[in-house]
Nucleic acid binder design. Structure first.
Length: 257
DNA sequence: ATGCCTATGCGACATAGA
């Protein structure tokens, strides 16, 4: 069973690339971020023809997450608990194939310091609380998405160039690290413990051509899911296509339960 | 020091991204 996460950076602009990637790699579940459209305008018909069911938590213009799946999925949570005033569409969760899967689009947090960074840290705190509740269920759980956190200096082309960025502030990293300490497994690092495994390359300054990348898209697995990892990786080639997203898909393969 | 690109929207620039 392959579970993937892909920040597509706009549905209207990216649908051809999304369909190509699905046809080529055939993930069983695809968690999408930055769909940048209201749910009503999400191309469920084109995706149905491609073999996928859709759960969509959209928003006009920005943000927005979705879960595509070959088998029908049962929604378990829409929006991250912990702040009823939070209107941003950044969290969607469902049961599919016996696994609890979340599609996460964590706030970027720039510029920092400031209100956007405060929102990011508050969102991370809410995620920690919700993750703890999921962990306690002892279900196989995969928290997949764009975390907008560079976990360590090994996950960025130049720590110095990004030193003041919200993605690698100590507070952002500490929150991510607490998830690992709590027992969640970073699937990419479980398979590739050292060296760069980037998932994002900026559109600017020739970042892709220079391999100036970041690792910010992650799959965090509960013990019951982590026990089943057979492989994990990044579909780098997707980033090199015409009119590509600035993110590449990341994925984990789980053996049958 | 700044912007480099890209996507979206009641578009003709502003905002957001990371």
């Amino acid at each position: 069973m392959r579970i993937a996460t892909f920040n597509i950076n706009g549905t209207a602009a990216r649908l051809p690339r999304l369909l190509e990637w699905l046809a080529t790699t055939q993930p069983d579940v695809a968690c999408l971020q930055e769909i940048k459209t209201v749910s009503e305008n999400f191309p469920v018909e084109a995706l149905r023809e491609a073999g996928y069911h859709c759960l969509v938590h959209g928003q006009k213009g920005f943000n927005g997450v979705a879960i595509l799946s070959k088998e029908p999925a049962t929604e378990t949570q829409r929006g991250l608990p912990g702040d009823d005033a939070d209107e941003q569409s950044r969290y969607l969760e469902a049961d599919v194939g016996g696994v609890r899967v979340a599609s996460i689009y964590l706030p970027n947090g720039n510029p920092q310091p400031g209100p956007k960074f405060d929102y990011k840290l508050a969102w991370l705190a809410r995620l920690e609380r919700h993750a703890a509740a999921l962990f306690a269920t002892e279900l196989p759980v995969v928290l997949a998405g764009d975390y907008n956190v560079i976990p360590t200096d090994a996950d960025v082309f130049s720590p110095a160039a990004m030193a003041d960025d919200a993605l690698m502030q100590p507070e952002s990293r500490a929150a991510y690290r607490r998830l690992l300490y709590a027992g969640w497994t970073d699937a990419i690092r479980a398979r590739t413990p050292t060296g760069p495994v980037y998932t994002f390359w900026d559109y600017q300054a020739g970042a892709w051509a220079r391999n100036h990348g970041l690792r910010i898209d992650h799959l965090l697995l509960s013990p019951r899911a982590a026990d089943r990892i057979t492989d994990a990786g990044v579909d780098h080639k997707v980033r090199g296509a015409e009119r590509a997203s600035d993110h590449a898909p990341a994925w984990v393969d789980l053996r049958a339960a």
